[in-house]
C-alpha cells in the first residue's frame, strides 16, 4: 500500500478493505490510513487523539535514547542518590539499599514497589524497545516475539515513574532538613537526566509507525507466510 502524504481524513467508502484503515482507539472513529508528511501528525477529527506522528529517523533516535536510558538506569541503581550527615554520623543510599532495606512485614511491599516503579519497570520497558527496534534499524528482520515485546512495552508506559522519583528526592531533602543535612549524590543527577530523556524519547514514539515497521520487516523476511490476511489491492 503506498503511503500517501497529506491529511488522513477522507470520507469513508462503503465497501472497505480493513488493511487500509486506522481506527481511533479513544473514540472508535475510522479513517483511511495515510502517512502524514514528515514531521506532521495525523489527528483524530473527533477527539483530537494523535493517531500517527511520522518523523524521519524516529526509530534510530528512540533506539539511541533507549540505550542511554538503560545505561543510566543501571548506573544510577548502584550509586548513592542521597547522603545524610547528622552529629558526625553519615549514611548514603542507592536504590539497591532502598530495595534491601525492608524491615517489618507488609511494609516490605512499599520498598519493593518503589524500586519496581523507579528502576525495574523503566529498565524492562527500554530493554523491550531496544529489542524490538534495534534489529529493524540494523536492516535485519524483526526479532522473534517482537510484537509481544512491543505490546508489553506500551503497556508498561504508565507504570514507569522515574520522573516522579526525582521530585521525591527533593521533597525528602527538605523533609528532614532540621534533623540532618542531606546532599544529592551522583545518582540523583543521573535520574534527572534520564527522566528528561524518557520524555523526549516518548515524543518520538509513534506506535502506528512501529507496528507498520514490524509488519513490513516480517513480511520481507518471508513473504510466503505473512501473518495478516492479505487483501488484494
Amino acid at each position: 500500500m503506498p503511503d500517501v502524504a497529506g491529511p488522513i481524513q477522507d470520507p469513508m467508502p462503503q465497501v472497505v478493505d480493513t488493511e487500509q484503515l486506522i481506527g481511533c482507539p479513544n473514540c472508535d472513529e475510522v479513517y483511511r490510513a495515510q502517512m502524514p508528511r514528515n514531521g506532521e501528525r495525523a489527528v483524530c477529527d473527533r477527539c483530537s487523539t494523535v493517531l500517527i506522528a511520522s518523523r524521519e529517523g524516529a526509530g534510530l533516535r528512540i533506539l539511541a535514547l533507549s540505550i542511554a536510558v538503560l545505561i543510566l538506569v543501571v548506573a544510577a541503581s548502584f550509586h548513592p542518590f542521597l547522603s545524610i550527615n547528622a552529629a558526625g554520623i553519615g549514611n548514603k543510599v542507592s536504590l539497591l539499599d532502598v530495595a534491601t532495606s525492608f524491615r517489618s512485614g507488609l511494609l516490605v511491599l512499599v520498598s519493593v514497589a518503589t524500586v519496581l516503579l523507579i528502576v525495574g519497570l523503566p529498565a524492562v520497558r527500554v530493554g523491550l524497545l531496544i529489542y524490538v527496534i534495534a534489529p529493524m534499524e540494523l536492516g535485519h528482520r524483526a526479532a522473534p516475539y517482537a510484537r509481544r515485546a512491543f505490546r508489553l512495552a506500551q503497556e508498561l508506559k504508565p507504570w514507569s515513574m522515574t520522573e516522579v522519583f526525582s521530585i521525591g528526592c527533593a521533597v525528602a531533602l527538605v523533609k528532614v532538613s532540621d534533623l540532618a543535612s542531606l546532599h544529592f549524590g551522583p545518582a540523583f543527577w543521573m535520574f534527572t537526566a534520564l527522566s528528561i530523556i524518557v520524555v523526549v524519547s516518548d515524543r518520538y514514539m509513534c506506535s502506528w509507525s512501529i507496528w507498520k515497521a514490524i509488519e513490513v520487516s516480517e513480511a520481507e523476511a518471508n513473504p510466503a507466510d505473512s501473518q495478516t490476511e492479505q487483501a488484494p489491492t
Binding site: F81, L82, I84, A86, A87, I89, N91, V93, D97, V98, S101, R103, V110, S111, A113, T114, I118, M161, V164, F165, I167, G168, C169, V171, A172, K175, V176, L179, A180, L182
Partner: peptide, 15 residues
C-alpha cells in the same frame, strides 16, 4: 511522590 519519599527516608535515615 509521598510513597517514594517514605521509602527513601526509611532507607536513608538510619543513624
Amino acid at each position: 511522590i509521598d510513597v517514594f519519599v517514605v521509602a527513601i527516608l526509611s532507607a536513608l535515615v538510619q543513624l
